[in-house]
Design a protein around this nucleic acid. Sequence first.
DNA 1: GATGAATGAGCATTCATTCAT
DNA 2: CATGAATGAATGCTCATTCAT
Lengths: 207, 207, 207, 207
Amino acid sequence: MTALATAAELEAPTDRKSTILNTALAVFSEKGIEATTIDDIRQRSQASVGSIYHHFGTKEGIAAALFARGIDDYWAQLIAGAESQASAEGMIRGLIEAHINWIISKPDLARFLFSRRQAVSPAYEQAIRLRTADHFKTVFNLLKPWFKQGLLRRLPADLYGPALMGPAQEYSRQWLSGRSETDPRAAIKELSLIAWRSLAADPDSPT
Amino acid sequence: MTALATAAELEAPTDRKSTILNTALAVFSEKGIEATTIDDIRQRSQASVGSIYHHFGTKEGIAAALFARGIDDYWAQLIAGAESQASAEGMIRGLIEAHINWIISKPDLARFLFSRRQAVSPAYEQAIRLRTADHFKTVFNLLKPWFKQGLLRRLPADLYGPALMGPAQEYSRQWLSGRSETDPRAAIKELSLIAWRSLAADPDSPT
Amino acid sequence: MTALATAAELEAPTDRKSTILNTALAVFSEKGIEATTIDDIRQRSQASVGSIYHHFGTKEGIAAALFARGIDDYWAQLIAGAESQASAEGMIRGLIEAHINWIISKPDLARFLFSRRQAVSPAYEQAIRLRTADHFKTVFNLLKPWFKQGLLRRLPADLYGPALMGPAQEYSRQWLSGRSETDPRAAIKELSLIAWRSLAADPDSPT
Amino acid sequence: MTALATAAELEAPTDRKSTILNTALAVFSEKGIEATTIDDIRQRSQASVGSIYHHFGTKEGIAAALFARGIDDYWAQLIAGAESQASAEGMIRGLIEAHINWIISKPDLARFLFSRRQAVSPAYEQAIRLRTADHFKTVFNLLKPWFKQGLLRRLPADLYGPALMGPAQEYSRQWLSGRSETDPRAAIKELSLIAWRSLAADPDSPT
DNA sequence: GATGAATGAGCATTCATTCAT
DNA sequence: CATGAATGAATGCTCATTCAT
């Protein structure tokens, strides 16, 4: 499966390129992209500047490579989480669960992915946006049957994302920046319920 | 009212200090704090480097001044929004409404406030966190009666924020970065309902 | 007079800016523009990198400043040399003499001026070309009377420069690069004669 | 004929070494030696860095190889041009003609040859100078009879070159850098006349 | 012979900050 | 209070060259 393959690629640092990438991820996560210097990456990765540039061309090239992998990896997990469920509520829980589990298992990548801003050039920004929209559509298609059956509410297009993932996302940000005390796993149930309540067609529907 | 006073202070004054601050806000919002140089601010504000340093001492000093004002301004508006309401559901709507309205009226300040990260030194970070926690407590106290009356659900402490503001926050991020098409004002009603559903106690099983 | 003023400015290194410029000229002349590093200039000028960039913006900015002054200075001397003469032959001798004397008195500037190539960006290149063409026209106007009187031969436009200054120029290149043994002053008479022979309308005209 | 052989060698062969050399010449001509990177040559020649170094050892090695061929090729043509003539004036015309024709037929090589400066290390510089002096002597020997017959003027040694080739050289520089409008072929006659006038012993001598 | 990953010294340039006027 | 010249550490990036495969 792509998700696993990518994940494996992110973890198995046998060759220089992967080593550099993993190191970069760690430093980016710690200090932020802008505050990270090529020299930071060089020192920790034991690679030479030349080698880093040979493989990535630019500091931004490193970030872009990480973004591409990170996004695909994240969404693959989300989609897998949704596909493993057969009911409307189950699918929503599956998404929240997958999100939280991904955050927990790859906090560095998560911090990196969710902290961007002008960090990446407009060109990449656009590419990332399209890719995200594409993945989002896949998820939406998985939920479509429940919309058709009237189990999920119709909302303005811009609000599906916030309604479904907003609370989990906000919670994740807190946890990732160390501002949370509870175990994320314990939050899954409640966050799933919140998402379900927000989207369920009938507020009185049984949980 | 505090909110208005602060707002006035942010917009109106034409003295050097305020000019610099307003310029800095604009540039920070456009390029991010780290990517903004003192020279950017100098050029747009028509002030000299010396003058900027005379007033703020450090680049971070500028950011800190903006943060302080921004946070207080934002929360003052939130609190005012809550206080203007007398019911549980009304109060939640009041908060969401105040949030969205603030975002709309001060998008630069909003972008600046919500985009931070390692941008500010740990010292300020801590101060900001405490201040935020304090404001949050004020809001929480306003909601307390409804909790006591069993109208609002009890949640793990870390989840109140995400449940209440998560969707609105997520939506705001999208809108502020230009990734949203709907008019924010039109989203208020739906976001309020989402927040209310997330927090309202189940009529069948009161906590 | 402009020429003197410029010359004075080039020699009187009272302020930082002039000091940097003079130092740059010396190093450029020694090692060539491309081979010269900002650090070379910094060390010899006792200025800081920041200061250099404060005044010139770019390494190329330094070269451009030198070019502008150098060209004007050179042509001013040429023109003065021509203007000091009242006959056709005298004027041609005046030009050659001025050329050689300028080379001798400012060898660094001469080496710098005559060694360019892709060293300067196309933008500057164009500016330089226009400026040179302008100066050339001034000289040509001084010679015009002799053309009208039939004392000087008509040539294809592109050949006036080579015919008039080619030998002197070629000789100068040799001398500036140390490939010449004779005293340039001794060459003036002969080079003037060569130029005169090349341009004189009547080969029988007396020397 | 040597000239043709060399020319053929420069243009025809399709093996790696020649391809690299021809590519290098093109890039050198466009951007100058110093500004050309091995990577520029690699990209355009489709060869690998390793291959380039295998054949030439150094970046300077490439330039040196080109210089050697270029100089020999140029002078061979000059000498051939002189040898094809039997009169003093014819010989001078032959030289100018050969010069211009060579410039036209191999503009890249010409640009490369005439643009050097600190581009090559002192060691090569010296070798080139000696080689050039040698070729020059050959030409001078061809002209010797006319000097003995009193058809050509005696000049300080350093001035023969400038007097003979200065105008043609200056004109060539202009043409090679695109600053000339007239067809070089049309300039041959006039440039020959100029050279002849400069060197002819007696101004009354027939043209 | 060919390939391309790896190296690391070197360079132009940036930028927050200071301080004399 | 304002100005802008001066500072210099820090940084991203280049590029000739080496060498194992």
